[in-house]
Write a protein that binds this DNA or RNA. Structure first.
Lengths: 212, 212
DNA sequence: GGTTCACTCAGACTTGGGACGGAGTAAAAA
DNA sequence: TTTTTACTCCGTCCCAAGTCTGAGTGAACC
């Protein structure tokens, strides 16, 4: 008989925590040693709870899961963090992996999948949901992003274009001449393969470049 | 002693359903008569399950909650539907209310809140989460939306502007003259209070006008 | 019958946008 | 040291963009 795997649940939805407990209570080899309703709370309490595996939601009110994952791994590099979220968009997946998450599951996962993932994470193995994996490879494929070709200055100019500013306003904002602005603007157009400033702004929005 | 309130749970997350069951199983006056993992499945099965109150998630793979709510209320106008979701953005709240939902709760709600909402819904009373209510009144306040001032034709033109098309392309697309396009474009500018087509495109994206 | 409104188009006009070519400086890479 | 790259700026030229005024049509409304 092996030791029980000690896990911690981090999710701001009370009912998700309850649901997970209902899931995992049927498992003999798993023991829930604690839970947290926010990322910050998890960071504060994981050391005293001493879990081996953490089930972490991403979107939470007080301290998101990615930041919490980073901070936890900074203090406990061997901790296994399983991301358990409702979303599988690129903006979430990449930072989560970068932050050091061991696995990435969707909340649509069945109890068996989650239990399997916990066991695998405990043994140091990664589990990525199929849909998430698709996004992942798709994201890697599109790597030659035209936007990255822009220089720092050109990115500033593009941002101002996407704000709807004209060349004179951009020049005033950046304390440079209008002619210089035009040079940057033209360079942006050729790099992004667009015809005018409106298309450049459209490019910026459709690629979510400046979504703050 | 009153009769038990018959409820149905609609959510594509297995664990949320489990969590809700764990919540509600402690309540004497509530009985779970069925569940569904998608909107379409809910529409197909609610008639045979005969619930009095339905707890409905909004975002689901197969048939979203708003569409399901509409279809259910078309067949059973007295059904009480409680929306139970993770989000509280305008694009979700308004259509849900329009669709006829009785209450709107967030998944961060506690078990007491949910149980209370079920009882109130059963008695025909509405419960709106505080944050959702804020969005709601904020949404009503901003009612004079410039975009709605646009005519049908002007909206078409604005969409093409937001696609990055120039006046000649717009004219060709709509089979009208360039002069006519210019008329529409100028009218759009004055109604949206913007200076040029780039700002109009920015307006469209920042207000999520054409997010398909 | 008259009024309003959306849609269409025209001519005349001004201006900002953008292309093209040229050029200087400073810093980093080779 | 030479080369490359990013950033800056100038002048010229052309055209699309946008304003303004005016006007005709058909549908809807009263």
């Amino acid at each position: 008989m092996t030791e029980k795997i000690k896990i911690m649940i981090v999710d701001d939805h009370d009912m998700v925590r309850k649901g997970l407990k209902a899931y995992l209570s049927t498992e003999e080899n798993i023991e829930i040693v604690g839970e947290a309703s926010s990322g910050n709370q998890a960071v504060r309490s994981f050391e005293s709870l001493r879990p081996e595996v953490i089930l972490m939601d991403l979107i939470m009110e007080d301290g998101n899961g990615i930041e919490a994952t980073k901070q936890i791994l900074a203090k406990a590099p061997l901790m296994k963090v399983i991301i358990l979220t409702s979303f599988y968009d690129d903006e979430q997946v990449f930072p989560a992996i970068e932050a050091g998450a061991m696995s990435y599951l969707l909340k649509t996962a069945s109890s068996e999948e989650i239990i399997q993932a916990i066991h695998k994470a405990h043994r140091g193995k990664t589990v990525i949901d199929g849909k998430v994996a698709q996004k992942l490879v798709a994201g890697l494929r599109k790597s030659p992003q035209p936007f990255d070709q822009l220089t720092a200055r050109e990115k500033e100019v593009l941002r101002l274009i996407a704000d709807g500013k004209n060349n004179a306003e951009i020049a005033a904002t950046l304390f440079i001449g209008i002619k210089t602005v035009k040079t940057h603007v033209s360079s942006i157009f050729s790099k992004l393969d667009v015809a005018d400033r409106t298309q450049a702004a459209v490019y910026a929005y459709q690629n979510h470049l400046f979504t703050k």
